[in-house]
């Protein structure tokens, strides 16, 4: 078996400052080339930080990163500035929630895409512009030749998001990181972008890490899911496995809270309380204070990492009995 496209091994991220924040606490994940892993979590779960670690986008002066991060055989944490510049965009690139902030307002969309191409491939401006046009066609922007000369503010929200995807794909990356790219979009536009991403990912054979808080969105694009809580992955598995047979109480709670198929007038099985502050590294199950199945063991030590099968991992004592029963 060849090495996976992405391998994160026990990654920890800590922000120093007036208050120390343990944003990511031992995340391990792998992503095969051509696969989509959805990372599901609520605000503060560390999902975006995990993603940014893969591009080394976190402010280095106040961040401590531990563990190993490998993408396409490169040790990402060891790249020097020149290697990092070559790595960003060409091997791994990223799309964001708000294209209005990610695109530069003073350059046309065409100029921005062409600039990214020139930077990585040393081709002439003319060739780059022609490639930019192809990319706009690829992301199915209507009348692409005209849009090439448009400024970001002249485009609608969905169109800007398409332009940003084109920009991210300019140097044909092997890994695409998507940070809530459809959260700010209307429902009918969101589904268009999701379908586009799914198709581009398949056609180009890219690996994709798709971060979202919306379980429906994650199901629509992912092959596998990882559920994050308080800076840890609490459950991973294929989409089917997680949907049909969720093991971690938090995953179950999230599925219930999605309200898909919830009956009107029924009481929702809401998870009580709120996520913990991450001022110290966890020494027990972070979810225990909100969990109705919590036992003394959960509050005393870190939960066991139970491997239920190939790529099916749950961090919960409940999974132990599931394993024993199987």
């Amino acid at each position: 078996m060849t090495a996976p496209l992405v391998r994160m091994e026990n990654v920890t991220v800590r922000f120093r400052g007036a208050q120390v924040v343990h944003a990511v606490n031992g995340v391990s994940l792998t992503l095969e080339a051509g696969q989509v892993l959805g990372i599901l979590g609520e605000s503060g779960s560390g999902k975006s930080v995990t993603l940014k670690t893969l591009l080394r986008l976190l402010p280095e002066s106040r961040t401590d990163i531990g563990g190993a991060v490998e993408v396409d055989g490169r040790d990402v944490l060891a790249l020097n500035p020149q290697e990092l510049a070559d790595y960003r965009g060409a091997v791994t690139s990223m799309i964001f929630q708000d294209p209005a902030l990610a695109l530069d307002p003073v350059y046309t969309v065409g100029e921005q895409i062409a600039e990214a191409i020139v930077r990585h491939e040393k081709v002439s401006q003319k060739v780059a512009m022609a490639r930019a046009l192809e990319l706009l066609e690829l992301v199915r922007i209507p009348s692409p030749a005209r849009r090439l000369k448009a400024y970001p503010h002249e485009m609608s929200g969905g169109m800007r998001q398409r332009a940003m995807i084109a920009l991210a794909l300019a140097a044909r990356p092997k890994l695409l990181l998507a940070d809530e790219p459809t959260t700010a979009l209307d429902a009918t536009v969101q589904i268009q972008i999701l379908l586009l991403l799914r198709q581009l990912q398949r056609d180009m054979g890219m690996g994709m890490l798709f971060v979202t808080h919306d379980i429906g969105v994650a199901v629509e694009v992912s092959d596998r899911l990882a559920v994050m809580y308080a800076g840890q992955i609490v459950e991973t598995g294929t989409v089917r496995e997680l949907l049909r047979d969720p093991q971690h109480p938090y995953t179950r709670g999230l599925l219930a809270a999605n309200l898909h198929g919830a009956k009107k007038g029924e009481r929702l099985e809401a998870i009580p309380g709120a996520p913990p502050a991450l001022n110290s590294a966890p020494d027990s199950c972070s979810f225990a204070p909100r969990c109705k199945h919590a036992q003394e063991r959960c509050r005393a030590t870190l939960p066991p990492v139970v491997e239920l099968g190939e790529g099916r991992v749950v961090r919960c004592i409940l999974a132990e009995s599931a394993l024993a029963a199987a």
Binding site: G158, M159, D186, T188, G216, L243, N258
Partner: peptide, 18 residues
């Protein structure tokens, strides 16, 4: 979103933005 990995949405019902 369909919430069903075996029966995903295949086609967007509308094109373009509102």
């Amino acid at each position: 979103p369909s919430m069903d990995p075996d029966n995903r949405t295949m086609e967007a019902p509308l094109a373009g933005d509102p």
